[in-house]
């Protein structure tokens, strides 16, 4: 179980994380979410160029026995998708904050990040 969460990320209550880097941001799902889903077998990715709306859905993630929508933690345009997930969806389980990232977006509004949780707050929200 991933009980600690990287400090440099922001978190949504739908269990997505964002790593902001200037005007660009990388999005993935948290280790907690990956553990809850179990072995990830498929990630349905949006086309590059798709515009994401904060807290709107942008894809689907499937495990053997569960399925969940992906919710955008921030608004923006998809600039890159993690093609490696097509053949190796298990990267989301193995390395949720690294090789298991899902999409990169160009941020529409950096202020949206303030509406997300920091690692400590997210950690508390998933405890117990």
């Amino acid at each position: 179980m991933s009980s600690t969460y990287p400090d440099d990320l922001r978190y949504s209550k739908e269990h997505e994380w964002v790593r902001a880097d200037g005007s660009q941001a990388t999005i993935g799902i948290t280790g907690f979410a990956a553990d809850e889903l179990g072995d990830i077998v498929f990630v349905e990715l949006p086309e590059p160029g798709t515009r994401l709306q904060q807290f709107g859905t942008f894809g689907v993630i499937e495990s053997v026995k569960a399925v969940s929508d992906l919710y955008a933690p921030v608004s923006g345009e998809v600039v890159e998708i993690n093609e490696a997930l097509r053949d190796q969806p298990e990267l989301v389980n193995d390395d949720p904050y690294g090789e298991g990232w899902i999409v990169k977006v160009s941020l529409s509004d950096g202020a949206e990040l303030d509406q997300l949780m920091d690692a400590a707050t997210y950690g508390e929200s998933t405890a117990g």
Partner: peptide, 12 residues
């Protein structure tokens, strides 16, 4: 590929 099916995806 059971995530396509009703017992998992229900209304979707």
């Amino acid at each position: 590929l059971q995530a396509r099916e009703q017992h998992i995806r229900r209304e979707k």
